[in-house]
């Protein structure tokens, strides 16, 4: 594969084209720049600090879960229960904080609940050998119904702890806390995928599960880890979301799993497993969230928030196959 270091310097447009051919994320980067350029021409407030922070905060929520989903997809599995789990986790977090009057207890409850959902998914997939698509759809249904057994309506904030609100709305220096959390998650998962045994084994598992087993890898444990990690990251996001909404909303997170998977696929991760990158996922999240934001500040019909990303996914995936073909032949 031509790495960027091997590309000879060339003048002007040729150089850009050559750099694009070597960069798997080229299409997304160009797309993102074009989107930002076009929206800011139409609405100058796009570049206001408040708007940029809003985009980053929205992106942070998706990115945290998408980091886990990228790991799962690379390993050849998928988790469709993340949206339902997100809503349930928010209710659990708010309820636990109300009862204990302690933010750490609420946070731990959120992580424990969502982590347990991940563990459950992982066990169903690895022990009962249910296909992960089916297993996690089932989990999604269980959670969507289960949350109403747990609470008929939104769990309101009765504790009024400033620290709880700070998780979603607070700042550390100039940076919103959710964005810092997302950055930390991004860095950790990036390093895990690129430089650790866990990451390399995950790629191997997705690329060829038989070869992975023959090589003595602990295939089941590896899959289980992917589901638990994703679960824990849903816990983090559930906590942030519940803090931002100042309530545990049983209806929150509808369709969230689709946004997450769309971002990961847009970022070039293969549904078939074995191939993908977290950088791609980051770009995928940003593209989707900039589109969302653009539709809002341009005052378009909000229904376009579903339509446009759908079109973008098809277009970007197509452009990427064209790029790969150019390079290969």
């Amino acid at each position: 594969m031509a790495s960027s270091s091997q590309i000879q310097p060339q003048p002007g447009a040729g150089r850009i084209a050559a750099a694009m051919a070597g960069q798997p994320q080229a299409v997304l980067i160009v797309l993102l720049l074009l989107l930002c350029g076009a929206i800011s021409l139409a609405a100058a407030q796009f570049y206001s600090l408040a708007n940029i922070i809003a985009i980053l905060r929205q992106s942070a929520l998706v990115l945290i879960v998408a980091a886990g989903m990228t790991t799962l997809l690379i390993g050849g599995e998928v988790d469709l229960s993340v949206g339902a789990s997100l809503a349930f986790t928010g209710c659990v977090a708010m309820d636990a904080t109300n009862r204990s009057g302690s933010v750490p207890v609420g946070a731990l409850a959120a992580l424990a609940f969502a982590g347990a959902v991940g563990l459950f998914n992982g066990l169903v997939v690895t022990r009962l050998r249910v296909n992960s698509l089916i297993a996690t759809i089932a989990t999604m249904m269980i959670l969507q119904g289960g949350v109403y057994l747990y609470t008929r309506e939104a769990v309101q904030n009765q504790h009024h702890l400033a620290a709880f609100t700070g998780i979603g709305a607070g700042y550390l220096g100039a940076f919103p806390i959710p964005v810092l959390l997302a950055a930390a998650v991004f860095a950790a998962v990036y390093i895990a995928l690129r430089h650790t045994l866990f990451g390399r084994y995950t790629y191997a598992l997705g690329a060829n599960p038989i070869a992975a087993r023959l090589s003595g890898l602990r295939v089941r444990r590896l899959k289980l880890a992917g589901f638990v990690i994703t679960g824990l990251l849903v816990g983090v996001t559930g906590l942030i979301l519940c803090s931002l909404m100042n309530a545990g909303q049983p209806t929150a997170g509808r369709g969230f799993e689709l946004t997450v998977i769309a971002a990961v696929i847009l970022g070039g991760t293969s549904l078939a497993g074995g191939r993908g990158s977290l950088i791609g996922t980051l770009l995928g999240v940003l593209v989707l969230k900039v589109i969302d934001n653009g539709i809002i500040i341009l005052r378009w019909n909000q229904d376009f928030q579903m339509v446009v990303p759908g079109v973008v996914i098809v277009a970007a995936t197509w452009l990427d196959t064209v790029r790969v073909r150019r390079r290969a032949v």
Binding site: M1, L197, R200, Y201, Y203, A204, A207, N208, I210, A211, A212, L214, S215, G216, L217, G274, R275
Partner: peptide, 18 residues
């Protein structure tokens, strides 16, 4: 059963010894 076709020569070779 053996190859990870899309992955590099290095990653294919080192899998069992990683």
């Amino acid at each position: 059963e053996g190859l990870m076709l899309e992955q590099s020569v290095q990653h294919n070779m080192s899998l069992a010894a990683l």
